[in-house]
Amino acid sequence: MDQRGRVLTLMAPPTLWLLLLFVLPMGAMALFTFRAGSFGAEREIWTLEHYRAFAGNWPFQRLLVRSAFVALLTALGSLVLAYPLAYYLAFHAGEGRLLLLTLILVPAWTSYLLRILAWKLILGSNGLLNSLLISLGLTAEGLPILLYSPAAVVITLIYVWTPFTALPIFAALQRIDRRLLEAAADLGHRPWEVFLRVTLPLSMPGVLAGFFFAFIPTVGEYVTPLLVGGARGVMYGNLIQDQFVRALNWPLGALMSLVMLVSVLLALLLFSGLVRQSTRVRL
């Protein structure tokens, strides 16, 4: 078999899988946005009504922007925490690196729901954090409640995503040729200059991958806001869910999902373009 044939054989199953279980459902969803209703005769009527409704509904649009902002904070927060972690693993952990890597991922083995509920115990009015602050005498009445706020959502999501963000950064740092670092030091760079001018730029692909890992799924997140977000922490994903499970307005729900998908992709393209340009300049 020539190389071309081999590639085709290898690519066929995943391509088929993506086509059947991803591209096709996406197409069906896009089609659904033009239907008048979810069932019966209404389903067979084609209309732009939902596009009009969404365009005129500024609370929904505003919430999408807000959710993107929450996702941005989450992704940046995860990066800030994950980078030192990955750096330590790649450069200083030595033989124990595999064990440490496993330990970092251990929480991911427990239920996602359980980990979120744990944060409820920490952030509540009589939670761990407030009890600690009161017993240390730092505050008399404890902080105003942290739970059920956008901040609680961001904190919980940063916790959830940090290990996953660390993985691609770790992989990128791992690949860096150590001789480059020595050369930079030999040429008179101080350690922080070596980091800023050699290590960081070379690990950028990992940082970007980590950023996307956290950012993309968070924009449409609905479980975490439901459990710890409260009334002020409602996100765009919760509204999409409401359209499907409550309002039975599947076309509008599909449209809201589509708008989210397209705007996230546009933002990503723009963002990665900017990053590529800026790294090119620096290199």
């Binding site: 991803f22 996406m26 239920s111 996602y112 729901l113 979120i116 996307f212 890992f213 993309i216 799924p217 968070t218 924009v219 449409g220 997140e221 609905y222 479980v223 975490t224 994903g237 999409i240 869910q241 999902s257 989210m260 998908l261 996230v264 992709l265």
Partner: peptide, 10 residues
């Protein structure tokens, strides 16, 4: 990944 965003693990 973006599509998965609306269907988190739990």
């Amino acid at each position: 990944l973006a599509a998965c965003g609306s269907a988190p693990p739990a």
